[in-house]
């Protein structure tokens, strides 16, 4: 009795999980299926769930309709790389300041770093646009990249929390050997901080790849677009070519999907720690 009871219970759990899975993975499967259909097949009523035959013409059409696709993909990678480098370098340097010095200014300024995390970003959308207009940065990548090189609050926080766990004795040994603050940072702290560097690299990459609003507001020229902004324009151009749109969506998911496969642990830990997707 209790044996069969358990089997019923286990089965019930799988049924629930699988039903929910259909709701969550279903739309992604529908995208995959649509991108491999012919244009004609997507107009069938009722629709076919899986493509009648696999074909990848949609990708060909996508790159024909929009010759800038390659350019946008390259742009997205370039911008993301520049943001990642800036985030790691600047945030680690600032976090070292906030973790290893004993001055009253440190205790007064660090709460302000944390406070900026709580400020809703959209209230700064318009005044930032005014600022970047006056700096003549609109229609360049500078509004996306420069802020990353000047210390993001999230990453400063992540680095600082990590640095606090490194024993101070290691610093002191280096001072005895004639080292200064900078040598401690570069020779002691950073070599021990690989895990947090990896986390920051992943988070900064995911964040910049997912960013839509920044590039959408500041970049005006088609050949400077990121992939997301380009795809948004494509929706307007070919709203009825469903396979090509699905192919475009698929391409924009692949880099993050691959990263997630290899770095799932880091992403999950980071989310739980900071409460954001990045």
């Amino acid at each position: 009795m209790s044996q069969s009871n358990r089997i019923v219970k286990q089965t019930g759990k799988y049924v629930l999980l699988t039903a929910a899975l259909v709701l969550f993975a279903g739309p992604l499967v529908w995208m995959l299926s649509t991108m491999m259909k012919t244009k004609a097949e997507t107009y069938k009523v009722p629709p076919t769930i899986l493509p009648e035959s696999l074909n990848f013409e949609a990708f060909q059409r996508l790159f024909d309709v929009q010759p800038l696709m390659w350019r946008w993909i390259q742009n997205s990678f370039t911008i993301s790389a520049l943001i990642v480098i800036g985030a790691v370098l600047s945030s680690s340097i600032v976090a070292y300041g906030f973790s290893r010095f004993s001055t009253k200014y440190k205790d007064r300024l660090f709460p302000i770093v944390l406070m900026t995390l709580m400020i809703p970003p959209s209230i700064l959308m318009i005044p930032s646009y005014v600022l970047f207009t006056k700096l003549h940065w609109v229609d360049t990548w500078l509004p996306l990249i420069v802020p990353a090189w000047l210390g993001g609050a999230y990453y400063i926080f992540l680095f600082r929390q990590f640095f606090m766990t490194i024993p101070q004795e290691l610093d002191e040994a280096t001072y005895l050997d004639g080292g200064n603050r900078w040598t401690v940072f570069t020779r002691v702290i950073m070599p021990l901080s690989k895990p947090i560097v990896v986390t920051t690299v992943i988070f900064a990459f995911v964040n910049s790849w997912l960013d839509f609003l920044g590039p959408f507001l500041y970049i005006k020229s088609n050949d400077m677009f990121t992939l997301s902004v380009g795809l948004q324009m494509l929706i307007g151009q070919t709203s009825q070519d469903f396979p090509a749109l699905a192919a475009g969506a698929f391409i924009s998911i692949v880099p993050i999907g691959l990263l997630f496969l290899f770095a799932q642990r880091y992403i999950v830990e980071g989310v739980v720690l900071t409460g954001s997707k990045g």
Partner: peptide, 26 residues
């Protein structure tokens, strides 16, 4: 893993997917 995947989809791709799923004709 599967439940987390949609969270990592860029918003423009999400919107494309939703337009495909919710399209009233097809």
């Amino acid at each position: 893993t599967f439940y987390y995947l949609p969270t990592l989809v860029p918003i423009v791709a999400t919107v494309i997917i939703w337009r495909l799923v919710f399209n009233s004709e097809f």
